[in-house]
């Protein structure tokens, strides 16, 4: 057993060493895999804020992942076709600038989370799970049946979007961008967890009545957490779409919601680095076992079962000592 802080450093070191080694031995595919891990981990970090810290078991985070992806797809497709998004009442053009796309993705997914959260947070328990799932599926079917942006076939973007000073088509450079974003978000989420807001969110998760009777508006508290959570997952969606240069309704599918949830459960619920470990393991299994058998989900299921039954707090929890939740 080691301190969680040191385990986190090892995990970060892995995210630096693996792509660096892949670069040295010229294995661009490994870098792409690592990029996928980093982006999916980011989606998990978003969900973990709601699910882990807040106890809000959202089974519809694909909604934000998807809307982030489609934000990128729609903006970039208009840019590549030189057609404006809309002309009246004012002109909105597409863009292939990553910073702009990220900003729009964050805002749009935050607004969507505000809407879905405002309605679904009036319920709790199983109902909350079902309502969030229902919203996610609504968007999934909407995306399938909306022909303007590819419908069921999805939408391809031919060239990766641009970031000033970076050649985003070079795998290691795009990886660097995604890794930097993950680090920034991890830092912010860590601060958030330790802030009065984070403590209140955790307190309300442990005992809602207690939070209410010290004068905390729990509904508003959770709604804000849900919006931040959705915004982070939305940003991950935009990056994921850029990685694949492709968006499709699958991003909205409930399988995607479940997948993000699996990262968290594997890695460790409410553990800062849990989603990274979970996403990494998932991608490794998918890559290696997926090559052996198309039924690799059976093995994933077995591992998930093992982790849930024997490793309290996921893999991160199983390997490290619990540190004071809000200390230092």
């Amino acid at each position: 057993m080691i301190r969680e802080r040191y385990l986190n450093l090892i995990i970060l070191a892995g995210l630096v060493i693996v792509p660096a080694y892949a670069l040295m031995v010229d294995e661009p595919f490994t870098i792409t895999l690592a990029t996928k891990v980093v982006i999916l981990a980011l989606a998990g970090v978003g969900l973990n804020l709601a699910l882990g810290q807040g106890g809000l078991v959202s089974f519809g985070h694909a909604a934000y992942f998807g809307i982030g992806g489609y934000t990128m797809g729609i903006l970039a497709s208009h840019a590549q076709n030189y057609t404006p998004l809309m002309t009246s009442p004012f002109l909105i053009e597409g863009t292939n600038s990553m910073p702009v796309i990220w900003l729009v993705a964050v805002v749009v997914s935050a607004l969507l989370a505000l809407l879905i959260g405002a309605l679904s947070l009036r319920t709790s328990g199983v109902y909350f799970i079902m309502v969030t799932l229902a919203f996610g599926q609504m968007l999934y079917y909407f995306a399938i049946s909306w022909p303007a942006y590819g419908g069921e076939d999805g939408l391809s973007i031919y060239v990766r979007n641009q970031f000033p000073g970076v050649n985003t088509l070079v795998p290691i450079q795009f990886y660097g961008l995604c890794f930097a974003i993950l680090l920034i978000v991890l830092f912010l989420v860590d601060r958030l967890n330790k802030s009065p807001f984070g403590l209140a969110l955790d307190g309300a998760h442990q005992n809602e009545e207690r939070a209410l009777t010290v004068g905390i508006n729990v509904y508003r508290l959770r709604l804000v957490a849900f919006v931040i959570s959705g915004a982070i997952t939305g940003l991950a969606g935009a990056l994921f779409a850029d990685l694949n240069r492709f968006v499709s309704p699958v991003m909205f599918d409930w399988h995607t919601s479940g997948q993000i949830m699996i990262f968290i459960i594997l890695g460790g619920v409410a553990r800062l680095f849990g989603p990274i470990v979970g996403a990494a393991l998932y991608i490794l299994l998918e890559h290696f076992l997926g090559g052996l058998s198309e039924y690799w989900f059976i093995y994933l299921g077995a591992i998930l079962l093992f982790v849930v039954l024997f490793a309290k707090g996921g893999i991160v929890g199983g390997l490290s000592k619990k540190e004071m939740s809000h200390g230092g």
Binding site: S195, P196, L199, A200, R210, V214, I216, N217, G328
Partner: peptide, 17 residues
Amino acid sequence: LGAIGQSGSVFRFFSPA
């Protein structure tokens, strides 16, 4: 947690409680 509720500092996101 009680002090946070009392002081209305619930929506402070950055400084450690």
